[in-house]
Design a protein around this nucleic acid. Structure first.
Length: 306
DNA sequence: CGTTCCTCCTGCTAGC
DNA sequence: TGCTAGCAGGAGGAAC
């Protein structure tokens, strides 16, 4: 469920509550949440013991904690929230939640970190940190304040830059969109092309740009594609300022509080409600085995069937 | 090779 | 009231 703004809120919570702490014991309830760690949950718990958390990082919808083991080796603990994952900071004595998948106890007397996930599409995995393939290494003479000193997890090097990263290159994304003979919404959701956008913010960006998601991306002009990307960035920034989007208690930030951006949505989930620009009722259509919301008047369907 | 589709889960709700 | 089909904000990997 969470898209970039929601994941960034969670990252900030991790930064505040767990960075700088030493893991004393990690525990996993079942193996599914660590299915990407092939040696299994006991092995992962062993590897995490006595690691210090140096940073909480994010690219698109992926989070990772930068860890340093007692032998000095640094790795990333990837955390993906999937559709329903939550991170909670709570006293170890708090009763276990339904669908609690992992707990982290720390060497200090502070609270636990917990991973709760109803559907378990989310996952955690350990990965080596490698140089970022998208961001050139800083020159040796650079002032030592460069971001991402530790590199990025090797297993997510296929994830593209998100539009909030300083190195995000709008021109190259537009060029790739111009080369794609496919629906523009499909491209917006492709995390290897531009990361962080999910079904909600794709629909919101398309509504703002007045483009139907089934238009072929290659058929849109470069300025139109540029506006679409800028709208995607803007809508995610606005959501971030308001603490993310939440329809119910399923999405909560690391403190357990919900966001309020859903009050500002113009398309997603608004079937039958008037378009805020022209008053035409918002329509819902099936696309890619899910729902798409758009204004029939501001966002006319492409003429030819795809 | 790139692109598209299916599938992994559980819970809620609309409709019968 | 009770059952169940359908749907939910993601993404890896199989299948073309």
């Amino acid at each position: 469920m969470p898209e970039l703004p929601e994941v960034e809120i969670v990252r900030r919570g991790l930064q505040e509550h767990v960075v700088g702490r030493r893991i004393e014991a990690a525990a996993f309830m079942g193996a599914r949440v660590v299915r990407r760690h092939l040696p299994g949950p006991v092995d992962l718990a062993d590897r995490l013991r006595d690691n210090v958390i140096h940073a909480a990082e994010r690219r698109g919808k992926y989070l990772w904690l930068v860890l340093e083991a007692p032998d000095g080796h640094s790795q990333g603990l990837i955390i993906h929230l999937g559709m329903s994952g939550q991170l909670l900071v709570e006293a170890a004595s708090a009763p276990p939640e339904a669908h609690l998948h992992a707990t982290f106890d720390f060497a200090d007397p502070g609270p636990q970190l917990r991973f709760v996930d109803q559907r378990t599409f989310g996952a955690m995995a350990l990965a080596d940190l490698v140089p970022d393939p998208y961001v050139p290494a800083a020159p040796r003479t650079a002032v030592p304040v460069a971001p991402r000193t530790w590199g990025i997890p090797e297993s997510i090097t296929h994830i593209a830059l998100d539009p909030l990263e300083p190195a995000f290159d709008q021109g190259s994304v537009i060029a790739r969109l111009k080369a794609r003979p496919t629906a523009v919404k499909r491209s917006l959701l492709d995390q290897g092309l531009i990361s962080g956008i999910g079904n909600i913010y794709a629909d919101e960006a398309l509504w703002r740009a007045q483009v139907h998601g089934e238009r072929e991306s290659a058929a849109l002009s470069k300025p139109a594609l540029g506006r679409l990307i800028e709208h995607a960035r803007d809508v995610m920034l606005e959501a971030l300022r308001q603490g993310g989007t939440s329809f119910d208690a399923l999405y909560v930030n690391v403190n357990g509080a919900s966001g309020y951006f859903d009050r500002s949505l113009n398309a997603y989930g608004r079937e039958g409600n008037p378009c805020q620009r022209c008053g035409t009722p918002i329509r819902r259509e099936a696309f890619m085995n899910r729902s798409s919301y758009s204004c029939p008047r501001c966002q006319p369907r492409p003429r030819t069937a795809r």
